[in-house]
């Protein structure tokens, strides 16, 4: 029943050959089996968004998918945002605008906002707030997160 299954996950362009029980969520497999602990778990039932990653270009809750279901998908986690030692514009903006305090929710917000900005760099304030309402932060009060994403959008627009 609880037999482990061999599978390959493709995360941030690298292959991870792992062996997991089918009941293991993608979030747990990323953390425990791939050693990618940047993806955080808060509620483990889809509500908080701490586990948000990008799968085949779209944001998903990594706690609501089993690792065995993610085979063949191109996965992106927070570890893939920086280029070497160079943070992404969004990561820099989070630091500059105090978009984080304890940082627990931050990987989820970064992946959520990254997918939103990649899809629409000219996202309106209203749409942005709607997108960000997906995730919970217990520290910042959200205003600084909105400011950080806004600033990153400007910077990304300016550099393209």
């Amino acid at each position: 029943m609880t037999m482990k299954q061999d599978l390959t996950l493709l995360v941030n362009g690298a292959r991870y050959d792992i062996s997991v029980e089918p009941r293991k969520t993608l979030a747990d497999a990323l953390r425990d089996d791939c050693g990618l602990t940047g993806t955080h778990l808060g509620c483990e039932h889809g509500v908080c968004g701490a586990c948000t990653i990008i799968a085949d270009g779209a944001p998903i809750r990594a706690c609501l998918m089993f690792a065995v279901q993610a085979e063949g998908m191109a996965l992106r986690t927070v570890e893939g945002l920086a280029k070497g030692n160079e943070w992404s514009p969004l990561q820099k903006a989070f630091v500059e605008h105090h978009g984080l305090q304890c940082g627990y929710c931050t990987p989820g917000f970064l992946m959520l906002a990254t997918s939103a900005l990649e899809e629409n760099p000219d996202i309106s304030d209203e749409e942005l707030r709607d997108v960000l309402s997906s995730n919970l932060c217990r520290c910042t009060g959200y205003e600084n997160i909105v400011k950080a994403v806004r600033a990153a959008a400007l910077e990304m627009g300016a550099s393209s």
């Binding site: 779209a58 944001p59 998903i60 998918m65 959520l112």
Partner: peptide, 9 residues
Amino acid sequence: IAHAPIRTR
């Protein structure tokens, strides 16, 4: 219905 990361699945 929910939010983008739920709507994608």
